[in-house]
Design a protein around this nucleic acid. Structure first.
Length: 351
DNA sequence: AACTGCCCCAACCGCATTGGG
DNA sequence: GCCCAATGCGGTTGGGGCAGT
């Protein structure tokens, strides 16, 4: 049973999320963390099903999301991983911090697939198209009842993990030899594909203890730097992006523009009913983490509220150390959609 | 300006898996 | 072992934006 029937049954909202809904969900999760999704909508005051909330958080609201276009390194990384793993988007996404399975899947379907075809490479097998066609013709003549030995987009599942890993290394070596720089190859090859630390996922307050200190594999230096940061040195909102691996990429201003409209809508509504809205919101999520669109202190209270909210709540909920909190919180808040609002402000940031 | 077709991507759908009772 | 609810995952869809005519 999918989401649809439960949404219909409970007359829940579907379709695109409004800024207000985002606000509620973001405030709720940053304050209370990710727990039972089915109870989130009720507690956060949303007319959505838990599944929808989960998806929205994972694909859009999560503060550790990297936004904008994929870098060449990421693209090569995805190609190598897809060759080894097939359409296992979640596993691929686990190796690309800040990227979601949905995002990678969309990127693959809309861009990489076409690119490969253009290059004469079969996107399913990663082999030259002529070879694939010849093989499928041979399969057809040998055994007409079998359309394909292997599901499309999937590697041979009969292989053991060790065999798959070996295949992966062989494949990626070939892939890197032809496509990657030495640096990225070294970086990639040094990471075993089944390294569980890759599966790190941002879940406020729910980090398994063994991963709480695990460095993010993608950008060690950035991570280390953040470990040493204090809260009062949160990244400034204007010089925000993770430059480590994304230096060459062009960032889409999608989220910024989206949040700009978010802000302007909020400004509009605040001129009419800001007190009502923010008051209502604080009733929902408590005092610490409200979105207040009070022109004087909105961003400051947003930041402090959220951070304080997480800090106090999560310290109580889980044995996170101060440094570990920094690990979770100082990372990439700067490029979060709700953080990029700063661009709409007067240009003065007080952090 | 109006229309059309294409592309991208957020969100949905439905199946699989997991976990608790 | 069975049942059921919750969650995870991959495939698919549909709406909005944009370029071309």
């Amino acid at each position: 049973m999918g989401c649809h029937s439960c949404c219909v049954k409970q007359k829940l909202r579907r379709g695109l999320w409004s800024p207000e809904e985002d606000e509620k969900l973001f405030n709720y999760i940053t304050r209370f963390g990710v727990g039972c999704w089915s109870s989130v909508p009720k507690l956060a005051g949303l007319q959505r099903c838990g599944k929808s909330c989960r998806l929205r958080w994972i694909n859009y609201l999560r503060p550790d999301l990297k936004r904008g276009m994929f870098s060449q390194q990421e693209e090569d990384h995805i190609l190598g991983l897809h060759e080894a793993l097939g359409n296992r988007w979640a596993q691929i996404a686990a190796q690309l911090p800040g990227r979601t399975d949905n995002e990678i899947k969309n990127f693959w379907n809309s861009c990489l697939k076409k690119k490969l075809i253009k290059q004469g490479i079969d996107p399913n097998t990663h082999k030259p198209l002529i070879e694939t066609e010849a093989r499928s013709e041979k399969d057809w003549t040998d055994n007409p009842s079998m359309e394909s030995q292997q599901p499309k987009g999937l590697p041979d599942l009969s292989k053991t993990s060790a065999e798959m890993e070996q295949t992966f290394h062989l494949n990626t070596t070939i892939c890197f030899d032809s496509r990657l720089t030495e640096a990225s190859r070294d970086h990639f090859m040094s990471k075993p594909i089944y390294d569980p630390s890759y599966l790190f996922e941002f879940q406020v307050g729910n980090l398994p203890t063994q991963y709480q200190k695990s460095p993010r594999p993608y950008d060690q230096s950035h991570f280390d730097a953040n470990l040493e940061d204090e809260f009062d040195s949160m990244p400034t909102l204007t010089s925000s992006f993770d430059h480590g691996n994304m230096a060459d990429s062009n960032f889409s201003d999608y989220s910024t523009s989206r949040m700009s409209s978010f802000l302007s809508e909020a400004k509009e509504s605040s001129s009419n009913s800001s007190h009502v809205n923010s008051h209502a919101m604080s009733n929902i999520v408590g005092n610490g983490s409200t979105f207040s669109w009070d022109v004087d202190n909105k961003l400051e209270s947003l930041f402090q509220g959220q951070l304080n909210g997480i800090k106090s709540e999560e310290v109580m909920q889980s044995p996170l150390q101060e440094g570990q909190l920094h690990t979770c919180l100082s990372e990439d808040f700067s490029n979060h959609p709700l953080m990029s609002l700063s661009e709409d402000f007067s240009g003065e940031h007080h952090f």
